[in-house]
C-alpha cells in the first residue's frame, strides 16, 4: 500500500466477475507521513482509508465486470464499521461481493480481515459513468496490470 497516493490494493488474489467476488491483499507500510499525524505516539490506519480500501477493492470488481467500459466513483458509504485498530506493518485481506449491478450505479458489500479477524466492513455504492477521459482509463489499466487484474477482463469478450 502507498497511503499518500491512495494505492490501497497491492495485489488481486482472486477475481470472479461471474460469481461477482473479488479478494485482494495489501500490506500497511511501516512508514508513512499519515502516521505522523494519525496519531502521534499511536500510529493507526485512518478509518476513512479502511473504507477507501473496501471501496477500491469493490471498484476493481465493478471495473472488471464492466470490462473497463465505465468508471465507478464513490457515491455512498453505508453501515461502515471499523472493528479494530490497524497498525503499520499489518497485512490485510479485503473481500468484496457485487450485490447489485444497476443502471448507472453499483452496490458492493466488502470487508477487511487480518489474521482471520474481521477489522472493518461496509456497503459501498458507486455511480458508474463513462470514463471522463482516456488518460484516466489508461491509468486505470496500467494500475490494473500492476495489481494483477487478469487481462482477460480489460476488454469486452
Amino acid at each position: 500500500m502507498r497511503l499518500e497516493y491512495f494505492q490501497m490494493v497491492d495485489r488481486i488474489v482472486s477475481l470472479d466477475p461471474v460469481a461477482r467476488t473479488i479478494r485482494m491483499e495489501g500490506l500497511v507500510p511501516e512508514q508513512s507521513p499519515i502516521f505522523e499525524g494519525h496519531f502521534p505516539g499511536h500510529p493507526i490506519l485512518p478509518g476513512v482509508l479502511m473504507i477507501e480500501t473496501i471501496a477500491q477493492t469493490g471498484g476493481w470488481l465493478v471495473l472488471a465486470t464492466l470490462r473497463f467500459a465505465a468508471m465507478p466513483f464513490l457515491l455512498q458509504v453505508k453501515e461502515a464499521k471499523m472493528r479494530s485498530f490497524v497498525v503499520p506493518g499489518q497485512h490485510l485481506e479485503t473481500e468484496a461481493r457485487l450485490i447489485h449491478d444497476g443502471s448507472g450505479y453499483a452496490v458492493i458489500e466488502g470487508s477487511i480481515t487480518s489474521d482471520g479477524k474481521k477489522v472493518a466492513d461496509a456497503e459501498i455504492r458507486y455511480r458508474v459513468v463513462p470514463f471522463p477521459n482516456e488518460t484516466l482509463r489508461a491509468q486505470m489499466l496500467e494500475t490494473a496490470r500492476r495489481i494483477e487484474v487478469p487481462e482477460a477482463y480489460f476488454h469486452a469478450a
Binding site: Q76, H100, G104, Y105
Partner: peptide, 19 residues
C-alpha cells in the same frame, strides 16, 4: 439512486435509469 436500488431489489429488475 437509493430508491432505484430498493425498487430493483423489490421487483427483481434493473430499471434503465441511464436510458
Amino acid at each position: 439512486l437509493d430508491v432505484a436500488f430498493a425498487i430493483d431489489k423489490a421487483f427483481g429488475i434493473k430499471m434503465p435509469l441511464e436510458q
